[in-house]
Design a protein around this nucleic acid. Structure first.
Lengths: 251, 251
DNA sequence: GGTTAATGGTATTTTTTTGGTATTGTATTT
DNA sequence: AAATACAATACCAAAAAAATACCATTAACC
């Protein structure tokens, strides 16, 4: 929403004769935020646009914005823009579709990034050999990532894939599913197991929470139509920041 | 379908003056995908063709495509082309079978019983008034139970139902759904929200775990076909004793 | 099997947009 | 008249956007 008139009416500024211009603009902006016309994460129009629209100078606009930045209601980014602050909210993921984390977050307008914890080919653990049904001597590709949404660490995700399906894990840069699809590997069935457990110490470090706090553990196994196991992914989400939503249609 | 003009109209790009070029192209491509002009598996025209057609540089085209790849909507293959992903959505799923606690436990071969914690008509809390959409002066039926499997307390379950649908909670002895069905109240849709949180002290007592340990919190809201809210149920499962399993069918 | 054309991948540079700041003018208050 | 708050102008710096030029991989063709 970059158009000024979309959330600012002219009468908001010229009405009620007395009082400094910057105070009126400040109140108008506060009102737009509280009423929801400007939501968390939205970009404010450029200062120059605001100034032109309100027929006041840019410095006056800045003084109004300054105060709201001081109050923490707006955030400035040099060269980029000014944005409405967004308190850390719980994000949700729908169970009824198996989509990639990134796609899911993007749909909610959250910027996400990931830091690699582990990426490469390894000798499988006994656990992986059984779950993935690996042949003797087979290798396993491991992709460990720390998922970050809006600068808040949100989840630790560890995926194991048989090297048969992903011989070049180093080349996975974005979505695991995209990488698999590029190799024509398309799972058709998946089972998710959701449970709660306490966060261990080294995990707490990564997630920026206290050790022992509650985390949502999700284990997913996906299968090809042939029945072969493609992927085993174990994720641990921050309990205070993540909701899993399932929508059911009953008989 | 490799011809650009087949799915991209020139006005899609030059219209609506403001905004970066790459965003416009991105939206145009998204639109083409969602509208079905580009189907899953289709090859996108080469980046150079797109650039020439839109009169923008190839890097700008790439930036638009980059974002869609990041969202998982497109897949790149070096030296080959860029393709529309076959989305892994369209999930028909068997989540409904997960809703019945008793059935779920029976499948695991566990005998279950319940102890009543609370059962009766009450003046609704503000929370309940909002979630259930109660009329002014309306009452609410509350059913609080401690679920026990094989002599181990497993979950605390608290249900709130508008008295309109359940005026006689004292007569509920087994399943809530059976009681509702007996009154011809049949929810057709439900939303479950699953999260993890620490167990509070009075809850820990009931569940026979240490206070502060991890619990699986499930909130379920079910609706009639009319959209009316029937039931709001909040459950807290012992994190160490319960898994929530969902099976998904893709494609 | 090598050649080659077509495709995506990347590094570098230039231009445009955006917030940041110093200076000056103007009205209000003291 | 001095001091203060307010507002306008002009210029600076950072970031994003866009363009250019060149590299790497694939696949088709001979």
């Amino acid at each position: 929403m970059t158009s000024v008139s979309a959330f600012l009416a002219p009468e908001d500024l010229q009405a009620s004769g007395s009082g400094p211009l910057y105070v009126k603009l400040q109140q108008a902006l506060e009102d737009a935020i509280h009423s929801g016309r400007l939501k968390g994460g939205d970009a404010l129009p450029p200062e120059r646009d605001l100034a032109e629209y309100a027929n006041i100078s840019r410095v006056t606009v800045r003084k109004a914005v300054d105060e709201l930045v001081r109050q923490g209601k707006l955030v400035r980014r040099h060269g980029s823009g000014t944005f409405v602050s967004r308190p850390m909210e719980k994000v949700e993921q729908s169970l009824s579709r198996l989509t990639s984390f990134t796609e899911d977050m993007a749909r909610r307008g959250l910027s996400t990034r990931a830091e690699w914890l582990e990426r490469g080919l390894f000798t499988p653990s006994p656990d992986e050999m059984v779950m993935l049904g690996l042949p003797a001597g087979g290798m396993v590709a491991r992709l460990g990532r720390l998922r970050i949404a809006d600068d808040n660490p949100l989840a630790i995700e560890r995926a194991s894939i048989s090297a048969e399906f992903l011989p070049d894990p180093e080349n996975v840069h974005t979505s695991l599913y995209a990488a698999l699809e590029a190799r024509n590997v398309q799972p058709v069935r998946a089972i998710q197991r959701i449970s709660a457990r306490t966060v261990r110490e080294h995990e707490a470090d990564l997630l920026d929470v206290a050790a022992g706090s509650a985390g949502l553990a999700i284990e997913r196994i996906s299968y090809l139509s042939s029945g072969k196991v493609v992927e085993l992914t174990r994720s641990l989400y921050r309990g205070d920041a993540y909701d899993f939503v399932a929508e059911l249609t009953l008989g």
